[in-house]
């Protein structure tokens, strides 16, 4: 059994009537990538900021590295964690290596700056001032500052939001390397692919509550192993709405229709017959495995990106 680095029990944080975090509990095990997955406003960042010491919680118990946290995160704990915030700005006019040097001086046993520069692939930008970096480079520097203290636990709050696909892929590669080096990673994201690809364990969060949890495979299989049929239809929206009465998990986006098929041959035949009978042209017909997006849709009736 792996050691639990973070344990949260019945954590609550309310802003007036808004229950940002509404009694959630979870454990983060050593060496795993733990992900809080949910749409914007689900309470992921608030949870993370409470654990990072940026926000105070109203009630609940938090244990980190065996110590119960009360109002703030003590310095000894902060020396063992690295943080990548959603917005990563730095003191302006400093160079990449100077920023890393600054953070390195704050930790008792930091890694070498050159080593970090290499890990985050900023060798060519080591002398560049931070305000001259692109979004992806800035995010990599943020990861560098999180790693410089050689932390046991790294919090990453939506680390790939706003990045282009290539930059996002680079960050994923980095996270996988950290994981293979034995670091524990606490990730929040609203990208289903990201959670599915990187996570050992996922908690799906919505409206401040945990609505599902498990490994990616378990979450998808708990969905019942349904297949997903997707197609583009040349028909009026009113006509397409008929599909909602025929199938489960129907999602209509412009002229694109997605629905679950618990019995693929039967459901496919019904769908094609309906299209033929109504003289509706079917384009881009495809069948795929269900994924976390479908799980979230099933659980909440909404898309992760809604």
């Amino acid at each position: 059994m792996k050691e639990a680095i973070v344990e949260v029990d019945n954590l609550k944080k309310h802003y007036g009537n808004v229950k940002a975090v509404d009694g959630i509990s979870f454990k983060v095990l050593k060496g795993e990538v733990f992900t809080l997955l949910g749409p914007n406003g689900a309470g992921k960042t608030t949870t993370l900021e409470i654990l990072e010491g940026l926000k105070k919680h109203d009630s609940g118990k938090i244990t980190m590295f065996g110590r119960t946290l009360r109002t703030n995160v003590p310095r000894e704990i902060r020396e063992r964690i690295g943080v990548v915030l959603q917005e990563n700005n730095f003191i302006e006019h400093l160079r990449v290596t100077e920023i890393l040097k600054m953070f390195s001086n704050l930790y008792p046993a930091p890694l070498k700056i050159e080593e970090i520069v290499k890990i985050v692939s900023l060798q060519e930008k080591r002398k560049a001032r931070v305000e001259k970096l692109s979004g992806g480079q800035r995010q990599r520097l943020a990861i560098g500052t999180a790693l410089i203290g050689n932390p046991d636990l790294i919090f990453m709050d939506e680390p790939t939001t706003g990045l282009d696909p290539q930059a996002r892929r680079n960050i994923w590669d980095m996270i996988e390397k950290f994981k293979s080096s034995g670091k524990t990673i606490f990730l929040t994201t609203h990208y289903m692919e990201e959670a599915e690809m990187l996570s050992d364990y996922i908690y799906i969060m919505d409206h401040g509550k945990i609505i599902a949890k498990g490994t990616p495979q378990k979450l998808v299989s708990s969905f019942g192993g349904d297949k997903i049929i997707e197609a583009r239809l040349s028909a009026d929206d009113d006509k397409i709405l008929e599909l909602e009465r025929m199938f489960n998990g129907v999602k209509i986006e412009n002229s694109k229709v997605t629905f679950r098929a618990s019995d693929l041959p039967k459901n496919m035949k019904s769908f094609l017959d309906w299209a033929e009978n109504n003289s509706i042209e079917v384009e881009d017909l495809s069948v795929r495995q269900s994924n976390l997006e479908d799980v979230f849709l099933k659980l909440t009736g909404r898309s992760l990106r809604d």
């Binding site: 940026l54 915030l85 700005n89 003191i91 203290g149």
Partner: peptide, 10 residues
């Protein structure tokens, strides 16, 4: 948000 980045460090 530079301050919050600094204050999550030790």
């Amino acid at each position: 948000k530079v301050l919050r980045r600094i204050f999550v460090a030790p």
